[in-house]
Protein backbone atom coordinates (compact mmCIF):
# COMPACT_ATOMS: atom_id res chain seq x y z
CA UNK A 1 0.00 0.00 0.00
CA UNK A 2 1.59 3.20 -1.09
CA UNK A 3 1.74 6.26 1.10
CA UNK A 4 -0.86 8.13 -0.98
CA UNK A 5 -3.43 5.36 -0.54
CA UNK A 6 -2.69 5.23 3.17
CA UNK A 7 -3.19 9.00 3.47
CA UNK A 8 -6.43 8.77 1.51
CA UNK A 9 -7.84 6.14 3.88
CA UNK A 10 -6.55 8.07 6.89
CA UNK A 11 -8.23 11.34 5.88
CA UNK A 12 -11.45 9.54 4.94
CA UNK A 13 -11.52 7.78 8.31
CA UNK A 14 -10.91 11.03 10.20
CA UNK A 15 -13.66 12.77 8.24
CA UNK A 16 -16.17 10.00 8.84
CA UNK A 17 -15.38 9.59 12.54
CA UNK A 18 -15.62 13.30 13.30
CA UNK A 19 -18.79 13.73 11.27
CA UNK A 20 -20.53 10.85 13.02
CA UNK A 21 -19.22 11.95 16.42
CA UNK A 22 -20.79 15.35 15.81
CA UNK A 23 -24.18 13.63 16.05
CA UNK A 24 -23.45 12.24 19.53
CA UNK A 25 -21.57 15.15 21.06
CA UNK A 26 -23.52 17.34 23.48
CA UNK A 27 -21.07 20.10 24.27
CA UNK A 28 -21.26 22.78 21.59
CA UNK A 29 -17.65 23.86 22.08
CA UNK A 30 -16.39 20.30 21.57
CA UNK A 31 -18.64 20.10 18.53
CA UNK A 32 -16.91 23.14 17.03
CA UNK A 33 -13.50 21.58 17.68
CA UNK A 34 -14.63 18.33 16.02
CA UNK A 35 -15.80 20.40 13.06
CA UNK A 36 -12.32 21.97 12.75
CA UNK A 37 -10.78 18.49 12.61
CA UNK A 38 -13.31 17.39 9.99
CA UNK A 39 -12.66 20.43 7.81
CA UNK A 40 -8.88 20.03 7.95
CA UNK A 41 -9.23 16.35 7.00
CA UNK A 42 -11.42 17.36 4.05
CA UNK A 43 -8.70 19.82 3.01
CA UNK A 44 -6.26 16.90 3.03
CA UNK A 45 -8.63 14.99 0.77
CA UNK A 46 -8.69 17.97 -1.60
CA UNK A 47 -4.90 17.87 -1.80
CA UNK A 48 -5.04 14.17 -2.67
CA UNK A 49 -7.64 14.95 -5.34
CA UNK A 50 -5.35 17.49 -7.04
CA UNK A 51 -7.21 20.61 -5.95
CA UNK A 52 -4.51 22.36 -3.99
CA UNK A 53 -5.91 25.86 -4.28
CA UNK A 54 -9.26 24.70 -2.92
CA UNK A 55 -7.48 22.96 -0.05
CA UNK A 56 -5.66 26.13 1.00
CA UNK A 57 -8.88 28.13 0.65
CA UNK A 58 -10.69 25.56 2.79
CA UNK A 59 -8.13 25.82 5.59
CA UNK A 60 -7.97 29.62 5.44
CA UNK A 61 -11.68 30.35 5.14
CA UNK A 62 -13.37 27.44 6.88
CA UNK A 63 -10.99 26.27 9.58
CA UNK A 64 -9.57 29.74 10.11
CA UNK A 65 -12.56 31.98 9.54
CA UNK A 66 -15.97 30.41 9.92
CA UNK A 67 -15.05 28.20 12.86
CA UNK A 68 -13.49 31.12 14.74
CA UNK A 69 -16.72 33.05 14.25
CA UNK A 70 -18.72 30.03 15.44
CA UNK A 71 -16.54 29.65 18.54
CA UNK A 72 -17.08 33.36 19.21
CA UNK A 73 -20.80 32.66 18.97
CA UNK A 74 -20.51 29.74 21.39
CA UNK A 75 -18.69 31.90 23.91
CA UNK A 76 -21.06 34.85 23.53
CA UNK A 77 -24.23 32.82 23.92
CA UNK A 78 -23.21 30.70 26.90
CA UNK A 79 -24.27 31.74 30.35
CA UNK A 80 -21.81 33.65 32.48
CA UNK A 81 -22.14 31.05 35.25
CA UNK A 82 -19.22 29.07 33.89
CA UNK A 83 -20.96 25.84 33.05
CA UNK A 84 -20.48 24.69 29.47
CA UNK A 85 -23.16 25.07 26.84
CA UNK A 86 -24.82 21.65 26.67
CA UNK A 87 -27.30 20.95 23.92
CA UNK A 88 -30.26 18.64 24.29
CA UNK A 89 -31.49 16.25 21.64
CA UNK A 90 -35.01 16.19 20.31
CA UNK A 91 -36.82 14.20 17.62
CA UNK A 92 -34.04 11.59 17.78
CA UNK A 93 -35.97 8.77 16.14
CA UNK A 94 -37.29 10.92 13.33
CA UNK A 95 -33.93 12.53 12.68
CA UNK A 96 -32.00 9.28 12.57
CA UNK A 97 -34.67 7.70 10.38
CA UNK A 98 -34.53 10.69 8.03
CA UNK A 99 -30.75 10.60 7.78
CA UNK A 100 -30.53 6.84 7.36
CA UNK A 101 -33.32 6.86 4.82
CA UNK A 102 -31.65 9.58 2.79
CA UNK A 103 -28.33 7.73 2.92
CA UNK A 104 -30.00 4.53 1.77
CA UNK A 105 -31.74 6.38 -1.03
CA UNK A 106 -28.45 7.83 -2.23
CA UNK A 107 -26.74 4.43 -2.10
CA UNK A 108 -29.68 2.90 -3.99
CA UNK A 109 -29.37 5.60 -6.65
CA UNK A 110 -25.63 5.04 -6.97
CA UNK A 111 -26.13 1.37 -7.80
CA UNK A 112 -27.88 2.38 -11.03
CA UNK A 113 -25.00 4.53 -12.22
CA UNK A 114 -21.83 3.41 -13.90
CA UNK A 115 -19.07 5.77 -12.96
CA UNK A 116 -16.02 4.84 -14.98
CA UNK A 117 -14.45 7.99 -13.66
CA UNK A 118 -11.43 8.01 -11.43
CA UNK A 119 -9.40 10.83 -10.01
CA UNK A 120 -5.86 10.77 -11.34
CA UNK A 121 -3.07 13.17 -12.07
CA UNK A 122 -3.71 14.41 -15.59
CA UNK A 123 -0.71 16.72 -15.65
CA UNK A 124 -2.99 19.74 -15.69
CA UNK A 125 -2.76 20.23 -11.93
CA UNK A 126 0.86 21.25 -12.02
CA UNK A 127 -0.05 24.90 -12.60
CA UNK A 128 -3.29 24.71 -10.63
CA UNK A 129 -3.06 28.11 -8.96
CA UNK A 130 -2.08 29.84 -12.17
CA UNK A 131 -4.92 28.21 -14.07
CA UNK A 132 -7.38 29.06 -11.30
CA UNK A 133 -6.47 32.73 -11.54
CA UNK A 134 -6.72 32.76 -15.31
CA UNK A 135 -10.09 31.02 -15.25
CA UNK A 136 -11.48 33.40 -12.60
CA UNK A 137 -10.43 36.42 -14.59
CA UNK A 138 -11.53 35.06 -17.94
CA UNK A 139 -14.54 32.71 -17.90
CA UNK A 140 -15.84 33.26 -14.38
CA UNK A 141 -15.38 37.03 -14.12
CA UNK A 142 -19.07 37.83 -13.70
CA UNK A 143 -19.72 35.22 -10.93
CA UNK A 144 -16.56 36.43 -9.23
CA UNK A 145 -17.82 40.03 -9.11
CA UNK A 146 -21.30 38.95 -8.05
CA UNK A 147 -19.78 36.86 -5.24
CA UNK A 148 -17.79 39.89 -4.09
CA UNK A 149 -20.89 42.07 -3.98
CA UNK A 150 -22.82 39.34 -2.14
CA UNK A 151 -20.02 39.04 0.43
CA UNK A 152 -19.97 42.82 0.94
CA UNK A 153 -23.74 43.02 1.40
CA UNK A 154 -23.85 40.04 3.76
CA UNK A 155 -21.01 41.27 5.96
CA UNK A 156 -22.37 44.83 6.20
CA UNK A 157 -25.81 43.41 6.96
CA UNK A 158 -24.53 41.10 9.66
CA UNK A 159 -22.56 43.95 11.25
CA UNK A 160 -25.72 46.07 11.31
CA UNK A 161 -27.77 43.21 12.78
CA UNK A 162 -25.23 42.42 15.48
CA UNK A 163 -24.44 46.01 16.40
CA UNK A 164 -27.35 46.30 18.81
CA UNK A 165 -30.13 48.73 19.50
CA UNK A 166 -28.21 51.91 18.80
CA UNK A 167 -29.65 51.94 15.31
CA UNK A 168 -33.02 52.91 16.73
CA UNK A 169 -31.73 56.46 17.24
CA UNK A 170 -32.34 58.52 14.11
Amino acid sequence: MSIAVFMLYFFEAVTLITAVALIFIRNVFYGALLMVTCLVAIAGLYVLMFAEFIAVTQILVYAGGILVVIIFGVMLTSKISGKPLVVEHTRVVGGVLCGAGFFGLLMYAFTFQKFELGIFNDGLSDQAVQRTGVQIMREYALPFEVAGILLLIALVGSAVIASGSKSKQP
Binding site: L16, A19, V20, I23, G95, A100, F102, F103, F110
Partner: peptide
Amino acid sequence: ALLFSAGMV
Protein backbone atom coordinates in the same frame (compact mmCIF):
# COMPACT_ATOMS: atom_id res chain seq x y z
CA ALA B 1 -23.29 10.75 1.07
CA LEU B 2 -22.46 9.78 4.64
CA LEU B 3 -21.29 13.32 5.44
CA PHE B 4 -24.51 14.76 4.06
CA SER B 5 -26.64 12.32 6.06
CA ALA B 6 -24.71 13.10 9.24
CA GLY B 7 -25.24 16.82 8.63
CA MET B 8 -28.95 16.25 8.10
CA VAL B 9 -29.25 14.29 11.35
